Computed example of a mutant assay.
Amino acid sequence: MFSKKVKSLAELNGVAEELIQHFPKERVFAFYGKMGAGKTTFIQSVCRILGSKDNVTSPTFALINEYMTQEMKSIFHFDFYRIKDIEEAFDLGYEDYIYSGDYCLIEWPEMIESLLPDTLVEVKIEVQEDNSRIISAKTI
């Protein structure tokens, strides 16, 4: 189990690096948290740690963004918040991405839970009363 308290944005890169080091073989990460919890902001840090210099933004309307690492490897960033039904994920060809062996970072995975692979890293971001965040993760 991985768990870190984050008190400021300045700490995110360090926590992102620890997360990736803690799960070195995993490639699919499902990010859970309420609206405004900081999922996209944390994913920006994860992408930087993985070696992408691309502008990381929420793919809310596109459903998926692809970022490239310096080694020309893909990182796929999904946001399923606005998905209307599971068929949209099929139309997107989600399987090609999820089973590609590339990093897949998924926001709002609860919208496609039945389609998620058997093994992934569940990352939860919980906002505390003092506005800090608890970022916890485990393989499921």
Rank of each mutant, 00 (worst) to 15 (best):
V123K: 01
E71R: 10
D79G: 05
V123S: 00
K53N: 15
K138V: 06
I64F: 07
P24R: 04
P24Q: 04
R133Q: 07
V127L: 15
E126F: 05
K53R: 14
K39V: 03
Y67Q: 03
G101F: 11
G51C: 04
S58A: 07
L50H: 10
C47T: 09
I135K: 07
I75W: 11
R133K: 14
Y94V: 14
S136T: 11
G14E: 11
E71S: 14
N13I: 08
G36I: 04
Q21P: 00
D130M: 08
I64C: 14
K39D: 04
I49M: 13
G93Y: 12
E129V: 10
E129C: 00
I43S: 07
Y97W: 12
I125L: 13
L120W: 05
F76L: 00
D85I: 06
T60H: 10
E71L: 07
L9V: 10
Q70T: 13
S45L: 08
D85Y: 03
Y81E: 05
R27S: 04
A37S: 15
F78S: 07
F80Q: 06
T41I: 12
K138Q: 14
I106A: 07
V46I: 15
V6T: 08
I125R: 04
I64V: 15
Q128E: 15
S136M: 03
E110C: 00
D102W: 10
I83K: 03
S58V: 10
Q21S: 12
R27N: 11
K84N: 14
V6W: 04
F29G: 03
Y97R: 10
H22D: 04
S58N: 09
L19A: 00
Y81K: 09
L92K: 05
F31V: 01
P59L: 09
E26S: 13
L92E: 09
Y97D: 10
M1K: 12
F23L: 00
K53V: 12
Y94R: 09
I135Q: 10
E122N: 12
V56L: 07
N55C: 02
G38P: 05
K73R: 14
M72Y: 11
G101W: 12
I112F: 08
C104L: 08
K124R: 14
T60I: 08
K34Q: 15
Y67G: 02
V28N: 01
I135C: 01
S45Q: 03
A37L: 03
Y67H: 13
T41Y: 03
I134Q: 10
S74F: 08
R82I: 05
E113H: 12
S74C: 11
W108I: 08
E88L: 05
A62E: 13
E87K: 15
I112H: 02
Q70H: 13
L12N: 06
S8D: 10
E113K: 13
Q128L: 15
G101A: 11
T41S: 14
E113S: 15
A10C: 02
P59I: 08
E126A: 12
K138A: 10
P117T: 07
I140D: 04
K5N: 11
E107L: 05
L116F: 05
D79C: 03
S58L: 07
K34H: 13
I86C: 00
I134S: 04
K39F: 06
S45H: 01
